[in-house]
Nucleic acid binder design. Structure first.
Lengths: 231, 231
DNA sequence: TGCTGTGAATTCCTTCACAGCT
DNA sequence: AGCTGTGAAGGAATTCACAGCA
């Protein structure tokens, strides 16, 4: 059961957001055409994307908003709680920690970390900023699932390895750097033998976004209307 | 001369970043293999990506770091100055306005905007926060090229239209919403007839990044090591 | 020999057309 | 009749193999 396009996952996130908007406006029915228009893709695409994961509609009728929303949340793993630490409490890290909407969808910030003594000990969003030395114990003790990485680029690899070594399952990397995956080893890797799982890295890079924008302004004919970026 | 993959542009940004790192370490030569390893892609990919834009290497020798860097900057439009306004001066907007590295590469913040009276009039990074009412005149007067959009999602479409109407050429949208392109019309559209150019929209969405991460943690076998994301 | 540049092959993703329920 | 779900066709993007220079 391999082979779901990465782009499909990004679009599912978009569909989910649209469904939330519809629900907020108390619209209870939709269709592949309606979703497609709102998402800026084709109706074929919507149906194909959904078909990877099941049959959520009714022929001749369309989709029921709450049902499709629930199913997409299940598919995307958003009906469970995710414990998150943020590493790097500079301006970006603070903005991330305070971003409204992150706390929806069961993303719970449980710990904040930095190495700068000026920052460690301060309180952000009601949580104390801890020193990185405490990370391994904290991750194990608090069942942390993900780390959000908002450190300067030259410290990103080290911090990513610290997170991976402490045992997180995924890293959302905000630093404009490629994290080398082969150096990411989870704590207790030797215990896991058969069912070895790599640490997942997703990137959010807005410097890259700025540069892509510059390119497409200069070369508008090369621009395709798409959902994400890249990424 | 159509058909350069969007993913290629994202990767060019990555290559450029690597070249900057090499230059900072006074490494003056590289190769498709070296770049590939650092970028987490194949050497074929690197060469193909570069080949879309020219011949920058020497057979048998590889690439000269400063030359390839210069060429990539030219291709990406980073050897010119881009005037930027930031719309939405909440925590995220402030983090963006203060982000180090944005001011490299000739992205110059020339204006900051909001509608909240508590924020308008305050100073961020030495610039006064102006009211959105002033946007159209400001964009024309200061030759603004791009707008960075960091407003709440329910105001993103309106703000995007305001930016487009004021005459910016591109929008970097940080709000978790799809901007409907058909409503973006540049000021003076009637004047431009033949050489009509759409406003380019690039998205940077870290809520989407969080959700993709959740999915790939639950489905690690579906994860492909890639540069962006989407997106 | 070593590494780039590039047509050809392959794989992957999207688009299409229509079968299948309601 | 209307809209979903899906195998098949088509189109892109990546991978490959090797020709072409230094």
């Amino acid at each position: 059961m391999t082979g779901i396009p990465t782009a499909t996952i990004s679009r599912l996130v978009t569909y989910l957001r649209i469904l939330e908007g519809l629900e907020a406006h108390e619209i209870s029915r939709t269709s592949s055409n309606d979703l497609a228009e709102r998402a800026g893709v084709t109706a074929f695409q919507v149906r194909k994307d959904l078909a990877y994961f099941g049959r959520f509609g009714t022929r001749g009728m369309g989709y029921t908003v709450p049902i499709l929303k629930r199913e997409l949340m299940r598919v995307l793993g958003l009906n469970q709680t995710w414990n998150v630490v943020v590493v790097g409490m500079g301006r970006l890290g603070q903005a991330i920690a305070n971003y409204p909407g992150a706390s929806d969808y069961q993303f719970q910030y449980v710990g904040l970390f930095d190495v700068n003594p000026d920052v460690v000990g301060r309180t952000v969003r009601g949580l104390p900023v801890r020193h990185m030395d405490e990370l391994p114990e904290f991750v194990r003790g608090h069942k942390v699932d993900m780390g959000f990485l908002a450190v300067p680029p030259d410290h990103a690899q080290d911090a990513a390895q610290a997170l991976a070594g402490a045992g997180v399952r995924g890293i959302l990397n905000f630093a404009p750097t490629v994290i080398q995956p082969r150096m990411l080893e989870r704590a207790g890797q030797q215990e896991i033998s058969d069912e070895w799982r790599a640490v997942i890295v997703e990137n959010v890079d807005f410097l890259a976004g700025m540069k892509r924008l510059a390119f497409y302004i200069l070369n508008p004919h090369l621009n395709a209307v798409d959902t994400e970026e890249t990424e």
